[in-house]
Every structure is written in C-alpha cells, then in structure tokens.
C-alpha cells in the first residue's frame, strides 16, 4: 500500500475541514472494509493520500429512535449494532435483512450502512433496502448541511452526489405506521459471502386489505441501485392479491437494465428481478399483516 496520512477527528467540523483542506485527496473511513481493500490494490478512483477515520465523531455513531422523527443511523454505525438494537428490532426489523447479509460476522463487526452507500456499488446490499424505507441522508460540507433522499445519492458505479469535501452524517428512516412491512432479498449462488447477482428491496403499507403505499428498489441490475417508482405506484389502491404483486414484479423486470457478466447474463438478471420482486413483496405483505 502507498503511503497514507491518518487523521482521527472528534467533530464533524474538524472532519469536514480535513476533507476540504486536502483538495480532494482525503477520504472518510468508517469500517474500512471497502476503503482499505481499494487502497491496497491502488484503485484508480479511490486512492486517497489522507484517510480520515470518522469513528470518533459522536453524530456518526448515533443510533436512536423517536416515534415522531423515526430512526437515525449514524454513518459509521456498524452492522452488528444495527441488528443488535432493540428499536431496530421492534420498528425496523427489515433493515436486519441487509445488516445480517453484508459479509460475514467479521465484516459486520466493521462495515456500516453509511460506507455501503458512499461506496455506491450497484450491488450494495443496504441501499435498495434504505430506498424501500424512504430513507433520507444527512450530509454536511463547508457550506452547511443538506438532506437528500437515498435514491438520489448514487450516480454511477462507485460514484455519488456527495462531494469530496462533504461528509455523510447519518441516514434517517421515517416512522412507519401500522400496516407497514418491508423485506430485502438477494440472489447469490451460495448462502453467504458473495456479491448479489440481483437484489430487491420492497416495502408496503396495507390498510383495510389495500395497499396505501409501496416501494420497490433493485440492486445489481443497473449502474446504480434503482428505485422503480412505477412498480410501487401500480400497487397503491389495489387490494392485496397475487395478481397485483405480479404486476409490480413485471414492472420491476421491465425497469431493470442489467449487464451480462461472470455472475449472470442480462436475461437471467431480468428474470431474477421478476422472481425476487414477487418474493420480497410477498414477505413484506406477510410482515405488514402482523407476522412482524
């Protein structure tokens, strides 16, 4: 690995200053499970001279719930803390579908949803789940703080709308009323420790047997994680039925723009979008209807 300077600021202000003073040569590090791998191989795009360890900044370690404000997950909160959290388990249990899926136990001891989002892999297993939950990212830079829906963060493989002098602070999940359920599933050739061939995050709200809101988001079938708005919209107002779910799955399949690579052909990935959307929506419905 080439030489790096290491900084460990204790405040958001100091971290942003380090990032902006470096003229684009510094990067934040949460768990380092992407960043250190990229530094080691001398990645053409992610190869900073200064590594800014953000794990000592209180706001980035926040994991809190408020019935009005919803759930706040600090950008550096590790996966194991997410699935070990009582509030997550009672109000946002579908986030565990991603938190328990990223890497294995050791990776989950370090990896964060924030790093997963900022790394912006099309296959990032937390991103479609966050999008399905209508999560909003809080980002601070030299000129202040802004809030951006998670679906507007990734702009291409490994690229985001977060500037090099900005820091992701937290991801905020709005509270869900009764009748909410969500699910994230991916397809991989083995049971764990692999990169999604395709993945689907889905959420639904059901009142009196009808969908009142729904969202479907796809992984690994486009240059970025994809929000398929039309799939969710097709469900709204419909009674819960296999037919309605299949319609949404067809729309998700139509929206997917996959490539063929060693993990699967484009046709195969499109087929997976159909099957996985159906399954994720079905599980989300089951959870919404009380199986939790």
């Amino acid at each position: 690995m080439k030489w790096i300077d290491f900084e460990k600021p204790n405040t958001v202000e100091d971290a942003v200053k380090l990032l902006s003073d470096s003229g684009g040569n510094a990067r934040a590090m949460a768990g380092g499970t992407d960043l250190i791998v990229m530094l080691r191989v001398g990645h053409p795009r992610v190869n900073p001279d200064v590594v800014v360890d953000i794990k000592s900044i209180p706001e980035l370690n926040e994991l809190s719930y408020d019935a009005n404000k919803g759930l706040t997950v600090g950008a550096a909160v590790e996966c194991y803390k997410i699935y070990g959290d009582d509030n997550v388990n009672s109000h946002f249990s579908a986030l565990n579908d991603s938190a328990t899926l990223i890497g294995g136990t050791q990776i989950q001891g370090r990896a964060s949803f924030g790093g997963n989002l900022c790394n912006a892999a099309p296959s990032g297993d937390s991103i479609p789940n966050m999008i399905a939950h209508r999560a909003v990212a809080t980002i601070t830079g030299p000129s202040g703080t802004r809030e951006v829906p998670v679906e507007d963060i990734c702009t291409g493989p490994g690229q985001t709308s977060i500037e090099s002098d900005e820091l992701l602070i937290s991801i905020n999940f709005p509270s869900n009323g009764a009748g909410f359920g969500a699910n994230y599933i991916r397809f991989i050739p083995r049971n764990e420790m692999d990169i999604a061939v395709a993945g689907v995050g889905a959420s639904v709200t059901i009142e009196d047997g009808k969908f009142t809101s729904a969202r479907v988001s796809l992984a690994s079938v486009a240059p970025t994680p994809l929000l398929v708005e039309e799939a969710g919209e097709a469900l709204v107002g419909q009674p819960v039925s296999e037919g309605a779910i299949q319609k949404a799955a067809d729309l998700a399949k139509a929206a997917a723009k996959p490539i063929s690579d060693m993990r699967g052909t484009a046709d195969y990935r499109k087929h997976l979008c159909d099957v996985l959307t159906r399954r994720a929506l079905t599980t989300a419905v089951e959870r919404a209807q009380g199986a939790s």
Partner: peptide
C-alpha cells in the same frame, strides 16, 4: 487473502471479531 474474505487473520477487538487485514 489480505482482503477480508478468508478470516485467517481474525482477531477480537473490544469484544467483536474482525479481520485484522482490514484494520489499520
């Protein structure tokens, strides 16, 4: 592997297991 996949470098830090090749 030196890239987080094999677990041969696993150590326990503050009660959590991690791959020490991905810790500075």
């Amino acid at each position: 592997c030196n890239d987080g996949n094999c677990g041969a470098c696993t150590v326990n830090i503050d009660g959590r297991i991690v791959t020490s090749c991905l810790v500075l």
